Simulated assay, not measured.
Amino acid sequence: MIKNNIQTQDNKQQSLLFTPLRIKGVTLKNRIGVSPMVTWQAVDGIPNDFHIAHYGQFALGGVGLVMVESTAVEPRGRITPADTGIWNEEQVEPWRRITTLIKSLGSVPGIELAHAGRKASTSVLSYSSKSMATDCENGWSTIAPSAIPFGDGIDKVPKEATLDDIEVLQQAFVSAAVRAVSAGFEIIDLHFAHGYLISTFLSPISNQRTDRYGGSLKNRMRFGLETARRVREVIPKSMPLFVRISVTDYADNGWDVNDSVEFAKQLKAVGVDVIDCSSGGVVNDIMYSTLNPSDVQHKASAQIQSEAGIATTAVGKIVDPLKAEALLRDNSATLVLIGRALLNNPHWPYTAADLLATEHTFKYHVSYDYSIGWHGFYNWRKNMQNDN
């Protein structure tokens, strides 16, 4: 069982949220991470000034980990034509500009490597209505474990992957991982969730194969386990490897939390360090608003951490610093990944620090320290005392 160690100082219980976390050779200054969120601002997969501003703001805001968005390992793996990519060398240097900035501001850069599978080739402008990319938007053919469309507007029938295709797809993840290392990323998160390529291999709803990649749970896990193992072999031994999974399909006869526990055990055995716990995305008619996915994900994170003996992340509507602290303190997770709260306030860690941190556990950026940091606080108190 993974247990979060609570340190003490001056006989007071310290915040776990602001306790550093070491994973292999990488140390996060705190346990606040940016959850990967697509932005659809790239051209030919290349990140630009938008991405520099977007990711720089989170690092300046004090997070320990800046995980950049779902980034395609090959062109047909993009969700939309405006996705970022890391399938060629031209994309490496623009990413290096971003990782250099993130590190200069005291955070660790991570990247989510992804392939959208049958949910690829959708329109940027109408993604909210889930329609396919038109010919003028350079739509393309898609691929999946079985020739079953997602539906709900994403109706293109994907090609059923051959064994040769599977080799090509796995090699795309491997090559992308090598480029990610070259680009300066220090953590890799493999995207095995949300009904994208590898998620559809895992679920019996979307995987109707009869070969060694389909049928039994062991066979359905094979693609993901092989991919994770191959990526682990080509990245530095000191580099943490995360895997994002959907802990449940929310559907009868689909992938469930018990499957996720078993998959986590197998992922740990091939060298994965952290399971990033999300959910859903395989079935097109799930009413998520009635299911409280955040609660499901947090409970699954706790179960996986306990039963599989591997560190997990909690993700989903974590907007209250005290909620984040509680998730860590009750061993529901080792790290929290935050999306909406950081979009609303990229300096969310400053708010959390006001509640939970001390001058020893949270450092403001030097440019802000005099105004709002501990240095500014002590000067303010000194001035108040002088006035009195």
Results as ranks from 00 to 15, higher is better:
M239C: 07
F223N: 01
Y213A: 08
A228M: 08
V243D: 01
G224Y: 01
D249H: 08
R232T: 05
A228L: 07
L241D: 01
V261A: 05
G254L: 09
A228K: 03
F242K: 03
G214D: 06
D259Q: 04
V234A: 12
A251G: 05
S260G: 08
F223P: 00
V243E: 00
R230Q: 15
G254W: 01
D211Y: 07
T227E: 01
F242R: 03
S216Y: 07
R212V: 13
V243K: 01
K218S: 12
R209Q: 11
R232S: 06
G214V: 07
G214M: 08
T248A: 13
M221V: 00
G224E: 02
R212C: 10
R212N: 11
R209V: 12
G224S: 09
E233M: 11
S216T: 14
G224Q: 02
S238A: 14
L217P: 02
R230K: 15
D249N: 10
M221P: 00
F223V: 01
L241W: 04
N258W: 11
M239P: 02
V234N: 13
G254N: 08
G215R: 07
D211S: 12
D252C: 08
S260L: 09
F223K: 01
M221W: 00
D259H: 09
F242P: 00
I235Q: 06
D256T: 10
Y213K: 05
R230Y: 10
V257H: 05
R212G: 05
V243H: 00
R230F: 11
N258Y: 13
Q208K: 14
V257I: 15
K237N: 13
D252H: 13
D252M: 09
W255P: 02
S206P: 05
A251W: 03
S238T: 14
N253R: 11
D252S: 14
R244D: 00
N258Q: 14
V231Q: 02
G215T: 05
T227Q: 00
R209I: 09
V234G: 12
V257C: 13
R229A: 15
R209S: 12
A251N: 08
I235L: 09
L217W: 10
D256G: 11
Y213E: 04
S246T: 04
R232M: 09
L217R: 13
S246A: 15
V257Y: 03
F223E: 01
D252G: 10
S206Y: 07
Y213L: 10
R244W: 05
P236S: 13
S246F: 04
N207T: 12
D249P: 04
V234Q: 13
S216Q: 07
T210W: 02
I235R: 05
K218N: 12
